[in-house]
Write a protein that binds this DNA or RNA. Structure first.
Lengths: 88, 88
DNA sequence: TTGTCATGCAAGTGGGTACTTGCGTATCGT
DNA sequence: ACGATACGCAAGTACCCACTTGCATGACAA
């Protein structure tokens, strides 16, 4: 599962994880606005959407769909692969 | 220091960290041969050298020079930035 | 239904990066 | 000194990846 490391390689994706940790269950637009206002990022909607796909493929983000909304939840358990690998 | 995440993004660099954890203080040629024989990698000397530069810039590898030999030691302390960031 | 909102899909583009290639430098043994 | 060893530097290449662009789909409100 090298996907976890690839997912963490991008600063925008790390900011997304930070945001979801502070407030889980955000939609795509919520994340976009908060990334701009609170993290100083200028990512477009499509860019954030693709980042979320990468994070979900890595198992770091889980999604649940309700109507036309899609909520995103943080899952830090894949990070255990890092701590286990080099004994932290 | 996003350099730590970038350094971990490459599978060859992660294998180098594994090797240095198992046997610290290896030279460039030692690493090359053991990466090929034990990890099934086919990286050239220059490739491994450049990977070591990246790892050293990230603070994950420290070097000490003795004559014409350069020994490489593992330092996992920068990985604390990951565990501290998302509370593991 | 009509319009709007929230999201998804896919091809194209630009910049970054891993790797090669070739030469150069310093150290050690003989 | 001479050759061999261990490593460094720098330009070129090919590939990957983040981002854009444009259109499409599904859900809710009026």
């Amino acid at each position: 599962m090298g996907d976890v490391f690839k997912a963490l390689a991008d600063p925008t994706r790390r900011a997304i994880l930070d945001e979801l940790q502070e407030r889980t269950g955000q939609t795509l637009f919520e994340l976009c606005t908060r990334l701009i206002t609170k993290h100083g990022l200028t990512s477009s909607r499509q860019a954030v959407s693709q980042h979320l796909d990468v994070l979900e493929a890595a198992g770091l983000v889980r999604t649940r769909r309700e109507g036309r909304y899609k909520f995103h939840d943080l899952d830090t358990s894949p990070l255990r692969t890092i701590t286990d690998r080099w004994r932290l």
